[in-house]
Structure formats: structure tokens, C-alpha cells
Design a protein around this nucleic acid. Structure first.
Lengths: 211, 211
DNA sequence: TGTACCTCACTGAAAATCCAGTCAACCCTG
DNA sequence: CAGGGTTGACTGGATTTTCAGTGAGGTACA
């Protein structure tokens, strides 16, 4: 991919984080990228195309967060941590007040919100959500080897939905990040039990598979 | 408030539920309300004004759901139910596939999402959220008399954030209502313990007060 | 009672604005 | 000098906002 294309996609990410998917104007995007509107049409087909590619770009980028928790000066390699801590880290990743996470979370929230009105976006969304939920379910299985797969799937769906819920509250200024992080921590305790070896309780929902 | 004003606000609610906040067009609103566009400018200052008032209207209306769970033919008066069931009913209220709830949830979700980009909306939002969380915390206190107020506040914030998270997933077509309801049920179990008399566990977050 | 005057709710139509998308031409650089 | 990369200027269509005016109904008062 050319530098220009990438530059435009990065600019689009910033504009989306600032104005929302629905607030993205080609003119503002061009200004943000430091180019003319016409050039954008040279590199991309149309507004929808930019949106699609940007959202893809963002999704990919979200996979590559490399655990930049500002509060972990001496970092422990992921493999060495106990499973529960790792689960917590992975979920907490989405609740950090850094430019990158903010941008990504904002854009992700916008994608979610837009999907309510634009069925086109749903497939992408469902795929990404599903893989996230799946990853979390796997971490839960490590943290709680005695629970059933069904229970893990349900707990994972709950925890990820909670992260999204807390995330919007944070981004819309109703909840400080720190508080959101504490709440998430509490939710993990509620799901896995207070002590280390607790089992996932309750049948929860059945194993719905979005596909 | 005149009938006309109210009528326009109601029409606006429907249009927002259908097209989203950004998708609201004065022309469509006028058509939905059965009046001319000009009349809207007679009653309200401008598009932003309509948005503001409609969102306020929606917030208020959300307080007045009167537990219309379609699946409760022989209804038990709220006072008679045990506190935990009542808590569950109140939260489940937001996850029903009826026109009214869908409209309100959709519009509420839009309000949340818009607030990420429009600070003007945040105050209203915070106020309403806070009172919702507060009500839920009170129900939790009844259901779990031995827990601390702090723990109840945290659990309430989590449960309501979860409801919002599940709600968007539902409305964006990633999750069937029934599944969302089961998941919420599971979350209540996780928070209150599986059996009836369980205590709210874990310190969770401190008692953040949005104001 | 008749009528001049006034206001409120409301409308059709045009003005103003906004925005995605296009095009002919320019400018490097190999 | 050919061609990819780039732009300023522009267009058409959609949307918001304004404005002049209409008609129903109310009020004061001769």
C-alpha cells in the first residue's frame, strides 16, 4: 500500500474518532490528510469505499495492540502470567486513555452504532465481535478449567458486551477510565468468583453462534 | 406543551429510531408529523434545537415504561414479587422486542453514541443514567440486604452498562433478544450468587458519582 | 351588532448552504 | 516526453433555513 493511501486511512481514523463515522466529510478528511479532495477520489472509489477500508484498517490495528498498559513499568511476558490476569489484561486493553485506544474504541463504537441503521456493516461487525468473544472464551477456559464451554461462551459474551458498554460511557464522558477499569475488574470477579480457583457459575445463555 | 409540539417530538423520536440522529431530515420529520417543514421552525429554533428537545423527551419517556412484559399474562403486582425477580424484570424491560422498547432503546443508544461527539448532550445523559443506576442499586439493596452500598453501586453500574452493551448488539443484529435476556439473567446470577440469599461479592469500583 | 385590528398556527416557495463526486490541466520524475 | 500523482474549480443534488403571506378566531368599542 502506498504511503498516500495509508496516510489517508490514518487521517480518516482520526477524523472518525473526532466526528464519528456519520460525521466524516470528504473535505475535512482531505484537510486532515493534507491533500485535495480530488486526490482521495484518485486513490479510493467513493466515500463508502473509504469507510469500508478505514474500518477494516481499524479492525486490523485493534488486533495489534501490544499491551501498552501505561501502569506496567516492568512488564511480564504474556505467557508467564496466570490465565486470569491475562484475561483481565486483554479486556482492560480496551479501557486505556491513550490516543490509539481512544481512537480505536471510538471508531469501534461508531461502527456498532452505525450498524443499527446500516445492515451493510453488520457482517464485518459480527465477524470481528465473534472472534473477540471467542478469544475471551478461550482465556476463560484457561482461567477456569472446570467450567463448561457453554458457560465460558456466555461469560465471554457478557464480559465483552460489558466492555463495550463501559467504553461508551467512558467516551461519552459519563465515567472516568479508572472507574471503568475497576468495574470491569469487579465483573471478572463476579464471573470467576473471588478467589483464584473459582468455577464459572450458572448456565447463563445457551451457546449462540452468530453465523 | 402544545399538542403540536408534542406531536413533532413524537414524530422525531420515530424518525430517530428509524434513521438515527444523524439521519434525521427536517423534511422527513415534517412528513412523519404531518405538517410542513416551516411549521417545525415556527415551534422550534432549528435542527439542533429539535434534537436537544427530542432527546430530553426520550430520556423522560424512558422513566415511564410501565413493565409491559408481553410474557406475563397473569401479572404479579410489583410489590408482591421478591426483590430479585423485580430487579430482573426492571432490567429485562429494556430487552423486549416491542415497538415502544425498540424505539426507545434505539433512540437512547443514538443519544449515547452522539454524546461521544457532542458534549452538549452529555449533561442530560449523565443525569438520566445516574438516576437509572441509582434505582437499580436500590433494587440490589433489597435483593441483597447484607451487601455494602458501595458494592451495590458498582454492581448497578455494571448491570446497566451490560444492558446497554447487550442492547446495541441486539439492535445491530448481532444477538437475538432471547439470548440477550438469558445473558442478562446469567449476569444477575453472577452478581448476586446462584442461590436466593447470596451476597454481592467483591469490592468492585468505588462509588463514583457522575456529578 | 358590526367592524377594524390583532395574533396564532400554519404553508408554499425560494434562498442559502452543504457536500459528494468530476474534470481538465499541471507537475514531477524516470 | 509519457504517465502516475495531484490539484483548483466546479457541478448537481440534497437539505436546512428564511420569508412573505393566508385564514381562523379573538377582542375592543362605536
Amino acid at each position: 500500500m502506498s504511503d498516500r493511501r495509508r496516510g489517508i486511512l490514518e487521517a480518516a481514523t482520526r477524523v472518525i474518532a473526532r466526528r464519528g463515522v456519520r460525521g466524516l466529510r470528504m473535505g475535512e478528511l482531505a484537510a486532515e490528510a493534507g491533500v485535495s479532495t480530488a486526490l482521495i477520489y484518485y486513490h479510493f472509489t467513493d466515500r463508502a469505499g473509504i469507510l469500508r477500508e478505514t474500518l477494516e484498517y481499524i479492525s486490523e490495528r485493534a488486533d495489534h495492540y501490544t499491551a501498552e498498559d501505561e501502569a506496567a513499568p516492568a512488564r511480564t511476558p504474556p505467557g508467564d502470567r496466570d490465565p486470569r490476569t491475562e484475561l483481565e489484561q486483554v479486556l482492560l486493553l480496551e479501557l486505556q486513555d491513550t490516543t490509539e485506544v481512544r481512537e480505536n474504541s471510538t471508531a469501534w463504537g461508531e461502527l456498532r452504532a452505525s450498524a443499527v441503521f446500516e445492515p451493510d456493516l453488520r457482517e464485518d461487525l459480527a465477524r470481528n465481535t465473534h472472534s473477540w468473544v471467542h478469544d475471551v472464551a478461550e482465556l476463560l477456559a484457561h482461567a477456569d478449567p472446570f467450567g463448561t464451554a457453554t458457560a465460558h461462551a456466555a461469560a465471554a459474551e457478557r464480559l465483552t458486551a460489558l466492555v463495550e458498554g463501559l467504553s461508551v460511557r467512558w467516551l461519552s464522558g459519563s465515567l472516568p477510565v479508572e472507574q471503568a477499569r475497576r468495574l470491569l475488574h469487579g465483573a471478572i470477579e463476579a464471573e470467576l468468583g473471588n478467589g483464584r480457583p473459582g468455577a464459572v457459575r450458572g448456565p447463563g445463555g445457551g451457546g449462540f453462534d452468530g453465523s
